[in-house]
Design a protein around this nucleic acid. Structure first.
Lengths: 184, 184
DNA sequence: ACTATACGGACTAGGCAGATTCTGTAAAGT
DNA sequence: ACTTTACAGAATCTGCCTAGTCCGTATAGT
């Protein structure tokens, strides 16, 4: 069988680590806890990441980048109607972090911006740019900017209003229907 | 000169009290602090309100009721176009609590729901009903519900996104323009 | 219709040992 | 390319104590 690329295990550790950090927050999560959850020894964790802070930054960055890449791919899928693509992209970007468990993932990122640096601001900005570009397929650029900003505001609000991913998706879909013209 | 109605001083105390509570939060605000800010003695405060909790509940309730009444009046002003009325109502309901100082007023209410009881949920529901009714002037009822909910989500999101009341108003106005049809 | 003063009891904060936990590193093994 | 074991130093938690603060009430006064 093909040997996994060296980054494979690293990647799995990062994914598990973010969930572990999300449970009790950055401070109250020990490297031992992270290591056990990743089925790895604690020194092994230090072999992969030089410090707790580095690990956290890498885990959060990876999640952000992957969601962004997924959103970009969904938005670029020329086969589906724009409205559907927008719903998919927002679901990936925000909706999947709605439930009581998943909310903590967003929380641990938002509550430790000083550890993460610029990405906490650049990633949302890039998401907005992706959404704007997609909407610009069917409207002028100026209108696309306004629609995208309003959709994002509605999405942020919904994350605070609803309890389930389904509720998020349902109400976000109405927002899309109201704001995004159907392709003629 | 006309003697102030007995409720006059009470009312002034409530207004000052809410601001005082907003500064450091409910727990860390002493009745002494509230009394001094209201230019009244501490036992005098207990003459007007039987406990700290009662006072807080009364102060928060009063603010919510007044904002609701103001919103209702603005929305009912038949002279102005609907879009303008909506902007005014939302500004009163949410926009005025945007800035760094005012944010704490919303915060102290949202962070102590157990002291306030049902009103923290009924007041927003009543606001939604008011907005829905106003929009139903120009659309069907079902559409009005959807537009109102989306406007409210956008408003909630904006409160978390923007730093100033002006920014809130500007972006909320675009949301209204995109979502609410102009009267023919 | 309040103010000034005062007081009991509950709660909160601050300080400070001592024990525990945690980070990061090292060494030796497989 | 990891694992187990071990360890130093820092940080964090624990329990306890004392001092202070605060709530709510009372009383006397105006």
């Amino acid at each position: 069988m093909a040997s996994e690329p060296a980054a494979g295990r690293r990647d799995a550790v990062l994914e598990s680590a973010l969930l572990t950090f999300a449970r009790h927050g950055y401070r109250k999560t020990s490297m031992d806890e992270v290591a056990r959850a990743a089925r790895i020894s604690r020194p092994g964790l230090y072999f992969l990441f030089e410090s707790k802070e580095t690990l956290f930054r890498a885990a959060a960055t990876r999640a952000l980048e992957q969601d962004l890449a997924a959103a970009e791919q969904i938005l670029g899928d020329a086969g589906k109607p724009l409205r559907e693509r927008l719903a998919g992209a927002f679901d990936r970007w925000a909706g999947r972090y709605v439930g009581p468990l998943s909310r903590d993932v967003t929380g641990v990122i938002e509550q430790n911006p000083e550890l993460l640096g610029a990405i906490v601001e650049t990633a949302p900005a890039r998401f907005e740019a992706l959404v704007t570009d997609a909407i610009a397929e069917v409207t002028g650029r100026a209108m696309a900017t306004r629609v995208a900003q309003t959709l994002i505001s509605a999405s942020v609000g919904l994350k605070h209003q609803v309890e389930t991913r389904d509720a998020y998706l349902g109400r976000f879909t109405t927002a899309v229907e109201l704001l995004v013209p159907q392709k003629a």
